[in-house]
Design a protein around this nucleic acid. Structure first.
Length: 361
DNA sequence: GTAGGGTTAG
């Protein structure tokens, strides 16, 4: 269209800018924006803000926000939703909440509620002082988000009610929905029923089940202290070649640690690597604090060696436990002396705050 | 039928 001189509307330019961001070519999106043959509008700016945020280009995103403001363009509902999402991703929950409260007066929709519910969960500040979206008819994503929120605040019955509501409608329930359902059942002390439902959902045709779904069931059993049952389910998932990821293995390891089965926990740590799933800092933390708890110095040294070899950085808490245990035995920690030195140097600097920070995507 | 937005775990 451009080469043949056909006039390209602002709609088409906006679609192209958005499309290049979404297909992983932010450079082209920006080039095209700069070459637009007409002036951009709110839709174009919204695509830019979202696009920049998706690539972690926070300053660029906010420079577009300032352009919108300086042009006196009023944000519509889509931009409002993008801004709630943007502030949330940056951990700026207060601002997300303010934008949301402002949007209530002008008509929030399902996207708004899904976003703010997730924001509240992330901020761990569940008290918004208002009820959310009771006037709005649930759609799939908002329903999923609401169930998740209700489970987190401990309102299990309300979560189950949302599930029933969703089931009675013409919604194509998905992985998120069933995961929320199982979480609620386990929280409601109906884990036997949850296990039956789990089996039934896995057998059902046409539902894509992901690692998250299996992991939630396994983790719920672990949290209920049903370690044997949790491990049977995990092993069954392995045998049946279900999709499992690093979180699934870590949750299973947590079950073994809680059940004080450290030998098996260490074997599973090895097995996951054989299965092609690389342990991360959280996995090592689970095993290592378990070994510290059991004062199992020999296994601890072996696992710590691997952790260091693989370049996985532990959290400050776990480092402290390791040093407390091993430094009492000079002979046992000689091989780690330089590593411990480095840990001491870093105390109090950035990495201590990592756990407080919220991922910017 | 005609641009842009949303939900999950250890």
């Amino acid at each position: 269209m451009i080469c043949s001189g056909v006039s390209v509307s602002v709609n088409v330019w906006s679609m192209l800018v958005n499309g290049f961001f979404r297909s992983g070519e932010p450079r082209k999106a920006v080039d095209l924006f700069n070459k637009m043959g007409c002036s951009p509008n709110l839709v174009t700016y919204t695509s830019l803000i979202k696009g920049f945020m998706d690539y972690g280009m926070v300053d660029e995103a906010f420079s577009v926000v300032r352009i919108v403001q300086s042009k006196g363009l009023a944000a519509d509902i889509v931009l409002v939703n993008v801004m709630i999402h943007t502030f949330t991703r940056l951990g700026r929950f207060e601002e997300a909440r303010n934008v949301f409260l402002h949007s209530l007066k002008k008509g929030a929709d399902q996207y708004t509620f899904a976003t703010i519910l997730s924001s509240l969960c992330l901020s761990r500040d569940f008290d918004l002082g208002i009820t959310i979206g009771t006037e709005t008819e649930l759609d799939l994503v908002m329903g999923n988000s609401l169930m998740n929120y209700l489970c987190k605040v401990g309102n299990t019955l309300a979560a189950l009610k949302v599930f029933r509501n969703m089931s009675n409608r013409d919604l194509a329930l998905d992985c998120y929905t069933y995961t929320g359902f199982l979480t609620a059942l386990c929280q409601g002390e109906a884990y036997g029923h949850a296990l039956n439902m789990y089996d039934e959902i896995v057998k059902r045709k046409g539902i894509r089940i992901d690692a998250h779904f299996h992991t939630v069931m396994i983790d719920s059993l672990v949290e209920l202290g049903e370690y044997g049952s949790a491990m049977r389910l995990f092993n069954r998932c392995v045998l049946e070649k279900r999709e499992l990821d690093v979180v699934s293995y870590t949750v299973a390891i947590k079950g073994l640690v809680r059940g004080r089965r450290m030998e098996e926990a260490c074997s599973l740590l090895e097995k996951m690597k054989d299965d092609g799933v690389m342990p991360n800092a959280r996995t090592y933390r689970t095993v290592i604090s378990g070994l510290c708890g059991e004062k199992d110095k020999d296994r601890l040294r072996k696992v710590l060696r691997e952790c260091i070899e693989e370049g996985v950085e532990l959290d400050p808490n776990t480092k402290f436990k390791v040093v407390s245990l091993l430094s009492r035995y000079t002979r046992d920690c000689s091989e780690f002396r330089s590593v411990f030195e480095k840990w001491r140097e870093n105390v109090g600097v950035s990495d201590s705050y990592d756990e407080l920070a919220v991922s910017a995507g």
